[in-house]
Amino acid sequence: MTKKIAIIGGGIVGSTAAYFLSQLDSGNDFEVTMFDDGNGQATKAAAGIISPWLSKRRNKKWYNLARDGATLLKQISKQSKMPESIYNQCGTIITREDSEKLKELYQLAEERRDETDTIGDIKELTADEVMRFVPIIDSSYPGVFVSGGARLNGDKYASHLTKIAKKKNLTIIKQPVSINKDGNVELDGQVLEFDSIILATGAWTKDILKELPLDVDVRPQKGQLIELSTTQILGANVDMPVVMPEGESDFIPLGNGRLIVGASHENDKGFDLSADADIIDELLNSAHSMSNQINAENLIRVKIGTRAYTSDFAPFFGRIPGYEKILVGSGLGSSGLTTGPLVGKILAEMIADKVDYDIDEYRKPIENYIKLVK
């Protein structure tokens, strides 16, 4: 019997869920419809750094999700034959001014290499070595390089995976939908019946569930970043690692004469998607502090998206209490491109009843974030 599955949201979580629903052994048993209007999608605007291993966040479940998410991304890239323009294992460098903090960072990398080989090779760099790795930079602190770090183009990733899924069992409808008071999908006033629904709606999760008696802990955070031309500075085909510099915005060379710098974290802007001149100036100043040849003339465009955050900054996923046919993954924050693929895979496997591992090592109880109001 074919089961009808709805996926609302075509970003990092939704596209990965669609991909795995097309690749599972029981893929022929699913008829999948994705609804996505693309408005404000964080995946399209995200900076795209995949390098979770040196994070000092104390949430162990988050780290498990990010660590294994980075490993899964590498596997998906190989399995789906992603070009380097989408997933590029270029390495990442994290800098520290204080020598003791740099030593601690290196030791942390060594410890976490015991947990996963995806981190790759680890090397401590002097400031001069950082600048040789990333020749566009003319000022740097010393740093730690991990070869397993990568950059991901979230927009192209989603398109790549949904293109594969469309060949099997996916239909995409580029229109907004809602969830009605009965927990069903509505499109232009028409109720559509599905056996299961995946909500991959990010910061809009609370809004799409507003007709249901649920208390949802999700809030929007605005993120702005800038794309710069570096062709006149260094040429068009120089591949470099991503740099996460202490005290400055992330520095992401794209290897095609382009550079991404960002992103901002703005908690009081709601779903505003307009560019903020002050934020753009801050990002330009940050870029200039790393490379004094960069200025406003290098600016190509501003990218803006809306991230989803919870009150404890932890992601959540699973079946919604009281509405078991609705599954959700949200609250991914600024690490969404790293954690989102694993969340999407797990949601697909839950629908297919293919989960054969302990998913609670990746999450707190979903009731911490979505409560049924009686």
Rank of each mutant, 00 (worst) to 15 (best):
K325G: 00
E349V: 01
N295W: 09
A236M: 15
I137G: 01
S264N: 09
S264E: 07
G235D: 10
D128W: 09
L225I: 13
S178D: 15
P365L: 06
S77Y: 06
A42M: 05
V130Q: 04
Y141F: 11
G333Y: 06
T43N: 02
D272A: 07
K44D: 15
M240D: 09
G336N: 00
D356C: 03
I86H: 06
I76D: 04
G247I: 07
N39W: 11
G11V: 00
F313A: 14
L273D: 05
L192G: 05
P245T: 10
I49D: 07
L284T: 03
V242M: 10
E104V: 12
D360W: 13
V343I: 12
R113D: 02
C90V: 11
D358P: 15
D250C: 12
G40R: 06
D281P: 05
K163S: 13
L327K: 05
G27R: 13
L65N: 15
T126A: 09
I197D: 04
I326K: 01
I351K: 07
P135N: 06
D128M: 08
Q175S: 14
S196W: 02
L212V: 13
K325I: 08
S196K: 09
Q190S: 07
E324T: 07
M244N: 14
D98K: 00
E100Q: 09
A17Y: 08
D188Y: 02
K345M: 08
M82Y: 00
L108H: 08
T95L: 00
F271C: 01
L332N: 00
P213R: 09
V238L: 11
N267V: 11
K364R: 04
K168F: 14
T162A: 00
V134E: 04
T16D: 07
A203D: 08
V355P: 10
K206I: 09
I226Q: 07
E97G: 10
P135C: 08
E104S: 13
G223Y: 05
L372M: 15
K325V: 10
M350N: 08
S274K: 15
D353W: 08
D268P: 09
A42R: 08
H288Y: 05
S55D: 12
I226M: 05
A352Q: 13
H265L: 00
I300K: 14
K210E: 15
D312S: 00
T306Y: 00
N368G: 06
I320Y: 05
I351D: 04
W53F: 12
K156R: 15
D114M: 02
A277C: 01
F317A: 06
G257Q: 14
A127W: 09
A200F: 00
R67W: 08
K325S: 14
Y309W: 11
K303M: 11
A296E: 13
F317V: 10
E282P: 01
T2D: 13
E246I: 03
Q89C: 08
K210D: 14
D278K: 14
T118Y: 01
P365T: 15
R307M: 03
D239P: 02
K210P: 01
A200M: 00
E227I: 12
T2G: 01
D272S: 11
Y87C: 06
E110K: 13
E84C: 05
N59C: 10
F145D: 04
G38F: 03
Y157A: 05
N237M: 02
S22E: 15
D36P: 03
T118Q: 10
K60M: 07
